[in-house]
């Protein structure tokens, strides 16, 4: 996913000389292509995220298109006030890329986890929040963000995310993509946790319990008309996110469904309200947090009875 982002941003920078990548002392080799193609359009802002975010604001005020890139927690909570005031209040077209999001950096501990970024940023007026699931969907998110008048936070994974979009068209902002359809139950996953939702759907199918899997790349804003046309017919809806259960995608979808007078059952699957201090692989950390395929399986299965 990181490599897909790097190659896409290089292509975009070649055709648009107002695009500038600001990085927080990471991605040294990752952006070699960009540095050789467009050397003046890459600036290493050092390990100083507050300054980097305000510098991006200054560039946007001057007519440039800054894209800020660093590890998700440092791109969000570390410089939250700069995002709120300099980008949010001033409504500036800055794209923030949070890489290695969720539990991607499970071995680095809670300092490098981001399980609260959706919740915290959602409450800032005018900011768009996106979480693509594969390289193809990153391209769409970047395109949407770079053509917006205000700020966008895009949270991406690390590497090795499978291509899930295949031949389908990545939807517009706020809409979902149905990987399967026709069932009475939907499991809606946002961002890089999508393959886990698909695994759970497979496990459920083995028990003759069939669910539709719907992928979302948007946390904010969610489009009401799409939900009305595509979600209201379900009996049960489950949301899955690599994020705290509190205030994130699940809550955003529940608010949306409430506005649409959804009458079915709803449950959200996300990280428990605890820091994950035990070290391990990303999948291990996801299990500890309560966002594994098993957990989704259990949640759907238990709501049957």
């Amino acid at each position: 996913m990181r490599n897909g982002f790097a190659s896409e941003i290089t292509n975009l920078a070649i055709t648009d000389e107002t695009l500038v990548l600001l990085s927080g002392d990471i991605g040294n080799r990752l952006f070699d292509g960009l540095k050789s193609e467009c050397p003046t359009q890459v600036i290493n802002c050092g390990i100083a995220e507050q300054n980097m975010m305000s510098v991006a604001a200054g560039m946007a005020l001057s007519g440039l298109k800054p894209v800020v890139y660093t590890i998700a927690p440092f791109a969000t909570t570390r410089c939250l006030e700069q995002i709120k005031i300099d980008l949010g209040y001033q409504h500036l077209p800055v794209v923030i890329i949070g890489t290695g999001s969720g539990l991607s950096y499970a071995k680095l501990g809670p300092t490098h986890h981001s399980l609260e970024d959706f919740a915290i940023l959602r409450s800032i007026p005018g900011i768009q929040i996106m979480a693509p699931w594969d390289v193809k969907s990153i391209r769409t998110c970047l395109d949407i963000a770079l053509n917006s008048k205000g700020p966008t936070y895009i949270r991406i994974g690390k590497k090795g995310e499978p291509d899930l979009t295949n031949d389908q068209i990545v939807p517009e902002i706020g809409c979902g993509l149905k990987i399967t359809s026709g069932c009475r139950i939907a499991v809606i996953a946002v961002g890089c946790i999508a393959p886990v939702a698909l695994d759970a759907a497979g496990m459920l199918a083995e028990k003759n319990l069939f669910v539709d899997v719907v992928l979302y790349h948007t946390v904010k804003p969610l489009r009401k008309s799409w939900a009305k046309d595509n979600l209201l017919s379900y009996d049960k809806i489950f949301t899955v996110e690599e994020h705290s259960k509190i205030g994130g995608f699940g809550d955003a979808v529940r608010d949306l469904l409430d506005e649409c007078n959804f009458e079915g059952k709803f449950a959200k699957i996300g990280a428990d309200d605890e820091f994950i201090w035990k070290v391990g692989s990303q999948n291990y950390a996801r299990k500890l947090a309560g966002i594994s395929a098993d957990k989704i399986f259990q949640a759907v299965h238990s709501l049957q009875n």
Binding site: N51, G58, M59, D86
Partner: peptide, 13 residues
């Protein structure tokens, strides 16, 4: 920092 971003933009533009 915002002023720095504006000043850097002058170079790029």
């Amino acid at each position: 920092s915002i002023g720095l971003g504006i000043a850097l933009s002058a170079k790029l533009l």
